[in-house]
Nucleic acid binder design. Structure first.
Lengths: 296, 296
DNA sequence: CTAATAGTGTCTTTAAGACATTATGAA
DNA sequence: TTCATAATGTCTTAAAGACACTATTAG
């Protein structure tokens, strides 16, 4: 016996006659923070090339925020998930396909877009720089890789009777040749026994569109948080890599140097030995490893 | 000199003439998984009462999924964030206010609601059971606390050439007196060098509306993941608590017993000693502590 | 040979697991 | 007095930090 509602309808009947109300709905965009670990040039044949953490931005050609830089992204269509939309947009805008993707956070401040009500479901993506097709972004859109740096400018913690208030200012710098984009993001945490209120505010944002400075900061903090206890860093390294290369990736993400011996002890679990060696290194050649993804 | 777009408009002019297109937009709901740690009754005056992990569900009075149980939640309004919507709905539906809230994930399968295109921005909430007003949910809506259990039924891992495939089946059980809701959720992870595809599928879901079994499973796994390295468990404990109580909370979340001595060594950092003691315990009274939230 | 990195050994420090011992109050 | 839990001590095991030492190559 099928259940009927207060109008005497079965579920099938209800759905057949159902018409969505005409209340206002938000547009939903999928935005992506794409990181890569770019190998720098090194003149000294003996020295090892350094790595830099980079992020992809797209120059806006129209209002609002005309001529500023924005994350790759676009609106979600009715026949796809936000993740599918993110992948589709990335492919359309940059030609990049098949990469690591992870949902970050949904930003929903009603006024984050001056045009209308737009939520942003944000994703973090990681690519090995060798996979990037340099000729990508060849349509009208101008996509460029920016060096990323996120520094803590200041932290202020006040203990209260039943919690604390902490205010941290971050300086986000994005650099591409002569283009330097700078933003200050304030992270405020107010903890009481009634929960915690965590808030990101953009204090200043120069050359970045919308609230994207906030999203980028969120992504970097997430990446830093996850890198030490997951295999996420493997996504930034080529098929064959040395343990020093992997360590460099950790160092540019965490923005600090690590000791070699303990690093190798811990993270050699992520690498499978091969019988190949790096060549023409000007010093003792290092063994090449393959990725050993952590199962489960 | 203000920049103008290809139509010769400044940003101000552009925004003044801007009209949103009439493409389809999703409805966005904010849904909440609210947990509490309920103290059971204990007959033996010497024995310590046990705790159970519980979760709040609301009985659906209309189609679709009539007479099944659903998470508390509702549609987001144009003047609020998803978080504000979650809080508003919770207050309206249950009378619960001022609690710990954390965004979980945005579920966006276009067919997750049979009526129309609805995304769910899901939240996890934690409350001390002492804060719950039992007479809540006094309007038409019927809100009830269900005992929660999530067991891994089966894990199957296959290593592949460049990654692995893992399939884990979870059994989610929700019980309230004679009402037993059961669901099987399959978590599939396919890892290749081109990223990881993580997918939750509902194999069966009895008595739970929409994809809420998936959301609940996601929430429990998140809670388990975060409890050991954050102070999140403090949200489930009253103002004054014993270390054994706190340990019980960890045990019901992790679904396994912990050793007392190492637990105290590690988590006494989350507790501030008071000079009060638990009373009428039928054995040595234990010291009461206050919450010491981890700053930063 | 040399500069620069590869790779390992080992001592110290810290934290976690395991379990035993002592302490204490209500009935 | 007894039962059940409180609270702590300590031995073991494992991991992380710090740093030194040896190995190896292109030029």
């Amino acid at each position: 016996m099928e259940p009927r509602d207060k109008n005497g309808l079965t579920e099938k009947e209800f759905l057949a006659q159902y018409r969505p109300g005409d209340y206002e709905r938000p547009s939903v965009a999928a935005d992506m923070v794409i990181f890569t670990a770019k190998v720098c040039k090194e003149e000294n044949y003996r020295k090892l090339p350094k790595k830099k953490l980079q992020l992809l931005l797209i120059k806006r050609g129209g209002h609002p925020y005309i001529n500023t830089w924005a994350l790759s992204g676009g609106f979600v269509n009715p026949d796809e998930t936000t993740e599918q939309a993110a992948k589709r947009e990335l492919l359309e805008e940059t030609g990049i396909d098949n990469i690591y993707l992870e949902q970050l956070y949904t930003f929903s401040d009603p006024h984050r877009d001056p045009r209308m009500w737009v939520m942003s479901c944000s994703y973090m993506a990681l690519v090995d720089s060798g996979k990037i097709n340099v000729s990508a972004g060849d349509d009208a859109k101008c996509a460029e890789w920016f060096d990323v740096s996120l520094k803590t400018e200041n932290t202020d913690i006040n203990e209260t009777n039943n919690g604390f208030t902490s205010v941290t200012d971050y300086i986000l710098s994005l650099q591409k040749d002569n283009d330097l984009l700078k933003a200050k993001i304030r992270l405020t945490k107010i903890r009481t026994d009634n929960g915690i209120d965590t808030k990101y505010d953009i204090i200043s944002s120069d050359g970045l569109a919308f609230d994207h400075a906030k999203i980028i900061t969120f992504a970097i903090l997430r990446l830093r948080g996850k890198v030490t206890y997951t295999d996420i860093a493997l996504n930034l390294v080529p098929e064959y890599f040395t343990l020093t290369e992997l360590q460099q990736v950790y160092e540019i993400i965490l923005d600090r140097e690590l000791l070699k011996a303990p690093f190798r002890r811990k993270y050699s679990t992520l690498a499978e030995e091969t019988d190949m060696f790096a060549k023409y290194s000007g010093h003792r050649p290092s063994k090449l490893f393959r990725k050993k993804w952590l199962a489960e």
